[in-house]
């Protein structure tokens, strides 16, 4: 029995020798246990801390959301106004049925100085960019009508219809006609102002690029 243990420890030493030149440091059982416990504790703590952080983050976000929601909500008086206006509107339209004594202000007018006082029958502008609109139901007949219109549109102007633009057509007339002229966008000053502005911008950019490249 003793022999056996000896050979075993010899073997152990052999193994250690082969891995390291130095003699093995003597580690007591207590020490290693304490270390293991410590590391375990540390790991637990970090996990807990992370959880807490996450919780905190969530809480903060929740708070933010709530605050935003609060901000988005309209003030109470505005909401009340909508409510009263809607009911008034209804009454008005009921009145209209038997006498057309409605007020002229309902027609959309664009006043001078670009001030729009327009109000559609089924929508209402409030302070800021909010519009309250009632949803109108579309009858099936108009759906069919739209489908039929789309059919013509796709047949005449859809893909594969080989269409050009009016600009091209008129410019071609200028080019081949008896009185030769430049393309329409040059003859008519107000034609295609958007495209012209874009072209101008691109030209400036190009010139700038040329200058930069020539200087360096």
């Amino acid at each position: 029995m003793k022999m056996e243990s000896k050979t075993q420890s010899d073997n152990f030493n052999l193994v250690l020798d082969s891995s390291d030149d130095e003699a093995p440091e003597e580690v007591t059982f207590e020490d290693s246990r304490a270390q293991a416990l410590r590391s375990m504790k540390q790991a637990l703590e970090t996990a807990r801390r992370e959880k807490e952080l996450l919780k905190e983050k969530r809480r903060k976000r929740q708070e933010l959301f709530q605050e935003q929601k609060k901000r988005k909500l309209l003030p109470v008086d505005v909401l009340e106004e909508i409510d009263s206006a809607a009911s008034k509107k209804q009454k008005e339209s009921e009145d209209e049925d038997f006498s057309h004594g409605d007020e002229g202000e309902e027609d959309e007018k664009t006043m001078k100085r670009g001030k729009k006082r327009g109000r559609l029958a089924n929508s209402r502008n409030l302070k800021g960019n909010y519009t309250v609109t009632t949803v109108t139901k579309e009858p099936a007949a108009s759906m069919q009508q739209r489908a039929a219109e789309d059919f013509i549109q796709s047949r005449l102007y859809g893909p594969g219809s080989c269409r050009s633009t009016n600009n091209e057509l008129l410019s071609l007339q200028n080019k081949t006609g008896r009185n030769k002229g430049a393309a329409v966008q040059f003859v008519k000053k107000d034609w295609a102002s958007k495209e012209k502005a874009k072209a101008e911008k691109l030209k400036k950019r190009w010139i700038h690029k040329q200058q930069v490249s020539s200087s360096c």
């Binding site: 102007y157 269409r163 009016n166 008129l170 008519k188 034609w191």
Partner: peptide, 18 residues
């Protein structure tokens, strides 16, 4: 010309030498 410029698209036609 102002009216023509607002019409829907015409067909694309190839004209000789243009």
């Amino acid at each position: 010309l102002d009216i023509q410029s607002q019409l829907p698209a015409p067909v694309r036609q190839k004209k000789f030498a243009t």
